[in-house]
Design a protein around this nucleic acid. Sequence first.
RNA 1: GGAGGGGUGGCCGAGUGGUUGAAGGCGGCGGUCUUGAAAACCGUUUCCCGAUUUCAUCGGGACGGGGGUUCGAAUCCCUCCCCCUCCGCCA
Length: 421
Amino acid sequence: MLDPKLLRYAPEVVADGMRRRHTVIDLDVLTTLEERRRAALSRVETLKAERNAVSQQIAALKKRKEDAGGHITAMRRVGEEIKRLDEEASGIEVEFTELLMAIPNIPDAGVPDGEGAADNVVVRAWGEPTTFDFSAKPHWELGAALGLLDFERAARIAQARFSLLWGAGAALERALMNFFLNLHTREHGYTEVWPPFVVAPESLRASGQLPKFEEDLFRLREGLYPAPTSEVQLTNLHRDEILDGATLPRYYTAYSPCFRAEAGAAGQESRGLIRQHQFDKVEMYKFTTPETAMDELESLVADAEAVLQRLGLPYRVVLLCAGDMGFSAVKTYDLEVWMPGMGKYVEISSCSNCGDFQARRGGIRFRREPGGKPELLHTLNGSGLAIGRTWAAIAENYQQADGTIRVPEVLQAAMGMDVMK
RNA sequence: GGAGGGGUGGCCGAGUGGUUGAAGGCGGCGGUCUUGAAAACCGUUUCCCGAUUUCAUCGGGACGGGGGUUCGAAUCCCUCCCCCUCCGCCA
């Protein structure tokens, strides 16, 4: 959520941010509502001040056993007026907050202009795109031929867009989860978290999925939602808390399955494991002070890159343009892994600095020093990495002429094999 | 799922309709004393919103959340959430 004070004191900053995002909002409606909110508040507060004062007089009179009937009759009318104005004020407040909650974050000045993926900027690449002296196959063909990947039975058990892994295929998924978590906890300083996999609507509001993106989510009958990413759980780890500034930055990492309904998204470009209703992911998350957040974003990206480097997977780092960024982000880098079978780079990690956007929604604050004033902290999140897509990248990059798949060296001990065949 | 009990400040814990943002204690912070420390003693110690001559003052709000009763609610009523105990069920 944006700072409401921005609307009042720097509406042009909001307008410019929305322009850069190619998001159309009616700023006037919002600023008008904000003014009405304050006007209603000051009216009702004046009356409440009167009521409080007279109530004390009544108490004093009663203590002395004197008559307070006149005051009580007068206050009865004031009370009715307060009730009416209170309802009006809270109605405006709710309307204002709902509108504000649907407005995306303002892009950082360092984010390039642009409308969509085509305008993103490649900032660096690692490794050469893998080439073969035979014709490379996509991972879904490799996986199906080796009996590792089974979409037909997954659809029977659940529905289209779910996947089923067999044998070494399942073991690879499990080995990747362990490898990622071990790397981040043992070498990158993250604390491991095993969260609930379903979340309450309030949690989704704090991280930014609600109220605007309900159609992307599954929902349980109980009103809970299977989490679309553990960014949600990690954001809410400290919701409504005031952290000791001396404990920042805090680094957390969590595995979770992720569930996305994505009703609108059906397309040919998302075959295989690339876009599923359920996928596994290890997420990295940081709570930081405002002044260190941008540096922390760089090191977050480096932590995700380390995973790809150890797996020997060629990738490039892309700085997203303003029009392509997610709702809550101030600045985002995507890591795109090379998929020789598909013949293109595919997003495998997205690392964002969300500034104070989620912190304001979730009431996540810190004190610089004991007794200091609470301030909103900054939050960052990044995939480290998407496991299904890593599975696919390994299959495509480590495939051999006979259709078997070599196991990356760092996974061989955990897998107990060096070739999947 | 059934029955019962309970949710008050960083923590413990008083408070059942009228200066109670909330006794007392612990913890924290500052001070006195002390060579130093401890003890003792004194003081201090929440957050949000709004206004203004904006770091200071004033006003409003918050005792799990929301709603109601009332001139007035931490205190009474309704509802939801959470925690505890016992029973049932269960990986």
